[in-house]
């Protein structure tokens, strides 16, 4: 029986040309969130409370694509989604189409705790939020200047991708930011806004929990739902492990990626790291994604086949790591 363990992520798929200063800011934020979670674990907060706490912090900071700083829809608005799952009883809550709730992850928790359902979306979710008295803000609060610029680039890139099927590189020499050959979800990696956030925790009593929150895809269609709120896809926890995924949503949904980690542990007897390696290698097909996971034994693991993943991991025995690029 191990002690507690925690992992956080700020999205898989990182622009190789990301300025050093932004890399440092990301690492600082990940470190701050890890430390917040570690303190909570040391004060014996249950895993489900810790994942909510940490994801709230990530949502509130504008750096990553969740809460404030969320990617924008094709109409320039923000539609956020989140889900949370508690391993011991497999209780779960999820929300989509959130436009005024400051912390979607806490609304997902309330769906789990206070509604007879496990998933509420759009106006129904907003009505539930009002009834529960959670903090509401104007949609403008979530919109950052950075993201307005990115939406413009995404629209330009999209029209090229969809109208002419010509590779971005050959046609976009005028658009300064689009100089990366890497693409995810059909967009140049610098604009597709991969930076979903998530946290997984096992507490010292062996209880696992997972939480994921996102603004979704830059320039997404109104009403688009990705993997983050889907139990078994972006988020999953049971008595064996807790998992949060990030990356190309459609590939993660097809692979039921988060549940898959647990399924190969449960049905094939793999350990956590082997399970993570297996699903990243065998289950993503052409898609690019990454995930973080903890086991009830206090192990922590991450895996990704994308170009980098913002992540941080720590365990009770003193291990701590914050990174962006491939370990090798």
């Amino acid at each position: 029986m191990g002690g507690w363990a925690i992992a956080v992520h700020g999205g898989a798929g990182v622009d190789p040309n990301l300025p050093t200063q932004r890399q440092e800011e990301a690492k600082q934020l990940l470190t701050r969130c890890l430390n917040l979670g570690i303190s909570a674990l040391r004060s014996s907060l249950p895993a489900i409370d810790v994942v909510e706490l940490v994801v709230r912090e990530l949502e509130t900071d504008p750096l990553f694509n969740s809460g404030r700083g969320s990617a924008l829809t094709e109409n320039g608005t923000v539609e956020m989604e989140a889900s949370i799952m508690d391993g011991p009883k497999k209780r779960c809550g999820a929300v989509s189409g959130i436009t005024t709730v400051k912390n979607p992850i806490s609304l997902a928790r309330l769906v789990m705790d206070k509604s007879p359902h496990s998933y509420l979306a759009f106006s129904g979710a907003e009505a539930f939020a009002k009834k529960q008295g959670v903090e509401l803000v104007d949609n403008e609060y979530f919109v950052t200047e950075d993201n307005k610029g990115m939406l413009k680039l995404a629209k330009e890139a999209n029209s090229i991708v969809f109208d002419y099927r010509i590779p971005i590189l050959e046609t976009c020499s005028g658009a300064g930011a689009i100089d990366s050959p890497l693409q995810m979800n059909g967009l140049p990696i610098s604009v597709y806004a991969p930076e979903t956030v998530g946290c997984v925790v096992v507490d010292s009593e062996g209880r696992c929990a997972a939480a994921t929150s996102t603004g979704g895809l830059m320039n997404k269609m109104m009403g688009r739902i990705g993997d983050s709120p889907l139990i078994g896809a972006g988020t999953y926890a049971c008595d064996l492990c807790g998992v949060s995924c990030t990356g190309e949503g459609e590939a993660i949904i097809r692979a039921t990626l988060a549940r898959e980690v647990a399924a190969v542990m449960e049905y094939k007897g793999l350990n956590l790291q082997d399970a993570v390696d297996f699903v990243v290698k065998e289950k993503l097909d052409e898609g690019q994604a990454g995930l973080i996971a903890v086991s009830k034994n206090g192990e922590v693991a991450c895996g990704f086949n994308s170009n980098g993943m913002f992540r941080g991991m720590a365990t009770e025995d003193g291990y701590m790591e914050v990174g962006i690029w491939d370990q090798n």
């Binding site: 998933y119 509420l120 106006s123 129904g124 539930f128």
Partner: peptide, 13 residues
């Protein structure tokens, strides 16, 4: 509740 999503549309559920 208005806005409730069930298992039907969720791949894998």
């Amino acid at each position: 509740m208005v806005g409730r999503i069930g298992d039907t549309p969720i791949i894998g559920s």
